[in-house]
Design a binder for these strands. Structure first.
Lengths: 338, 338
DNA sequence: CTGTTAGCGCCTTCAC
DNA sequence: GTGAAGGCGCTAACAG
């Protein structure tokens, strides 16, 4: 077994080799699929089992100059993370995929000050072979450190500087268009839109989709409000929107915002969807946790994360990038709010 | 700066030492706070800056026999994780705290099969100095591997085998008591309880609190239903409960369940809190995302995670455990559902 | 206070 | 197919 009483020093390859009656180098080959006689392999395997040998990761890393680890970099204020069920899903999927392929994921999620202080050294200390960055709204200093690191990197969501950096994203313009178009098809004529922070690529894209759908239908777009991706923004927006009785629909750029809109509308005595129809974005679990259940634009978050993982894995193995960016389609999920 | 064109080989301590005009060991001491003359330290620091030197982590680990990394072990089906906002918060807080103290958190979250196949080797490969386990409902095989690893470990939530293993938890009995007591004080007389999976320590404890509060009030407890910690359980439970018109309150053992109960009640035409009062547990963000806003028992999740981190850190530094377990108090947050 | 000398545990040439 | 030897980059005795 392993270490029944106290902490015996861990078993080394040397001991395995000795017990198997071969040289250390032979044992190494036997374990790593190098050339070795059938007998040698068997003897080594037996010894490994008997001793409970597990190769020391640090020694391997040092010798092979490869860590078999990747960083999951989340350049966002940790306190703000809980409003983002999308992120939880992304991290989860990445973790699962990387582990399956033999890579250990390191969580790079810390206080903003720590981040700018430590990220650089971390990335250059040979801790990881590559990284994925959940970009959203990154900050310039962090951006620079990431760029300077020369580590293979894939972005989840279009990165700030749309160089030719590898990334995976959805077509946000199309998503915004779909949501708006649906409302128009339902006969709504004055549609407001509540977005996330100005300047964020996805926010601007969804806005563009919103505008375009209105234009295509020959309908004047209703008010557009910037906010942040949380329920409070929605509540505030709703408070402002009810002032205009002609507004008969709201396209909220996230489910969290939509939830806030729903509440604001309710407390203003408006009924959904009769008086005002509401469409969200993301299709997170809150979409069905709220009444009425949200009609929303679904992002294939898990698939996106899967693509991210496979892009990075592909590069780590072949040393070249496949097609990039990869843009995945969205889908409108119709429920009760519109 | 660092690596402007292509991938230069990383700078080593040797080069730093040479440039600083000292021996490698002196440079090492200068960097690690060992004995060294002021001049030596300055020369080395200058060289470090000039060269952009960052010590190689693998080499350090090998030489010092210490990784400065910890594992965040989440022995749960990743697909089920999104119903658990608590977990997101735990992970986030742990990550932040560990980074602040110079420890890298490794996310151990993978497919169940991978877990039982890989966890053992991982823990014994010298990847980490310690780990925290978010226990919830662990499984026996994983449990054994964890126990066999002899790594310093702290559990978030009471571990299955309540040995004297270090852990942090809330007083679930008290939490269940508070929720129930509040309903009784409000004049409710037939209170149902919807719990999580049978056998889970926290579930049984909350149940016990529920029973005790009823007993103390001389009121017969209403039906007790086991389920899982998700909205569906709540919907099913509500469907069953409305059959008994005397039920005038529900204590749901998680906000997710409560949300389901709310929906089930609504579709049965019951109004909350008039017909049936509902109290949840956790005080997650969904508590305020739903109408009516949930009255719920708040767990100090972030503080708990902070305690976990500091317990592990303490042990890693002093090689001895402080007081354990640490039990934190809950708090009833009154909103609109009861 | 400093330089020299050994390793840490593994992989990888290179001869045999 | 195998063994011996060297090295990955750093830290930690040990003399001086």
């Amino acid at each position: 077994m392993t270490d029944p009483s106290g902490n015996l020093p861990p078993v080394t390859l040397d001991e395995v080799a000795r017990l198997a009656g071969v040289a250390r180098s032979t044992a190494s080959r036997a374990l790593n699929g190098g050339v070795a006689s059938r007998e040698a392999i068997e003897a080594v395997n037996k010894a490994v089992r008997q001793l409970g040998f597990v190769p020391n990761q640090a020694a391997r890393t040092l010798a092979r100059n490869r860590t078999d680890a990747v960083a999951l970099v989340i350049p966002e204020d940790p306190s703000r993370i809980f409003f983002d069920p999308v992120l939880a899903m992304v991290i989860s999927r990445l973790s699962v995929d990387f582990w399956r392929e033999g890579l250990q994921p390191l969580l790079v999620l810390m206080d903003p000050e720590d981040l700018i202080a430590k990220l650089g050294s971390f990335l250059n200390a040979g801790n990881v072979d590559g990284m994925v960055v959940t970009s959203f709204h990154s900050n310039p200093e962090v951006e620079e450190v990431i760029a300077a690191s020369s580590l293979p990197t894939v972005f989840f969501g279009r990165p700030p500087r749309p160089d030719s950096l590898p990334y995976v994203d959805i077509d946000n313009v199309e998503g915004g268009y779909k949501a708006t178009r649906y409302l128009l098809d339902k006969g709504r004529r004055r549609i407001a839109c509540v977005g996330g922070p100005a300047g964020v690529p996805s926010v601007e894209d969804r806005r563009q989709g919103f505008m375009r759908a209105c234009a295509d239908a020959g309908v004047e777009p209703g008010p557009y409000l910037y906010g942040s991706f949380d329920p409070e923004s929605g509540i505030n927006a709703a408070a402002a929107l009810v002032a205009d009785p002609r507004v008969d629909a709201v396209f909220a750029q996230s489910d969290a915002i939509a939830v806030g809109v729903l509440q604001g509308l309710a407390s203003a005595g408006k009924s959904v969807p009769e008086d005002v129809a509401v469409v969200g974005f993301d299709n997170t679990s809150t979409a069905t946790a709220v009444l009425p259940n949200l009609t929303t634009v679904a992002q294939p978050v898990s698939e996106m994360a899967g693509e991210v993982a496979s892009m990075l894995l592909g590069f780590l193995r072949t040393r070249q990038w496949g097609e990039t960016p990869r843009i995945l389609p969205t889908e409108l999920v119709v429920r009760d709010s519109a």
